[in-house]
């Protein structure tokens, strides 16, 4: 695990939740108990994501198994200075969703994340800022107007193409796009506060 992992411990946001970054370090050491704890928290959430995306229960269970096999095998790829454990698991789940539910290849995503691993680690200043990232992202979500949050939930959690979002909400496609841009602008503004 990269140096700086211990600093990121303060990412823990809710009382009673395990320290996921520390769990990842233990999983790298092949600690089964740590892996179980991570699964107990995120397994049911990855399943929820797949159900929302339109998978049947059995398919969703199946994908959860595959996602966590990847978590176990690729634990060492997790770089805490680049993002939260939830985001890392989300990206693995998203790739599995593309492969299994959209029947497309997620290879281009893997190409990009492999490049990221080759890139030099961020400098100390950048790392310090990243410690507070999760909080800022959570703040941004809370502050989003409902009409924007609804759209990004449909996109990220329900795997809905933007054209379908437009149909479902009876909005012009341009409005869906501009609300996505506004949501991204809010996120960026929050993250600027720590950069």
């Amino acid at each position: 695990m990269a140096p700086g992992a211990t600093q990121v411990k303060t990412l823990e946001r809710y009382d009673g939740d395990p320290d996921f970054t520390a769990l990842m370090s233990r999983i790298c050491e092949r600690d089964r108990a740590a892996f179980e704890t991570l699964f107990v928290h995120f397994g049911p959430r990855v399943k929820a994501l797949m159900l929302k995306s339109g998978a049947e229960h059995s398919v969703a269970e199946d994908i959860v198994q595959d996602v966590f096999m990847s978590v176990w095998r690729k634990a060492d790829y997790y770089a805490p200075e680049r993002g939260t454990v939830s985001t890392w698991i989300f990206s693995i789940a998203r790739n599995a969703r593309i492969d299994r539910l959209r029947r497309q290849s997620s290879k281009p995503y893997e190409d990009i994340s492999e490049m990221e691993l080759e890139a030099p680690d961020p400098d100390a200043e950048e790392e310090l800022a990243l410690v507070q990232r999760a909080d800022k992202v959570a703040d941004a979500m809370v502050e989003l107007p409902d009409e924007q949050r609804q759209i990004i939930e449909l996109a990220y959690m329900h795997d809905m193409p933007q054209s379908e979002i437009a149909k479902r909400l009876s909005l012009p496609l341009g409005t869906v796009k501009s609300r996505m841009r506004l949501a991204y602008a809010k996120l960026k503004q929050k993250l600027e506060e720590i950069r």
Binding site: S86, T87, I152, Y156, M157
Partner: peptide, 9 residues
């Protein structure tokens, strides 16, 4: 992608 992580969490 952090938005996805937050929503999953």
């Amino acid at each position: 992608e952090e938005l996805g992580g937050e929503m999953l969490f």
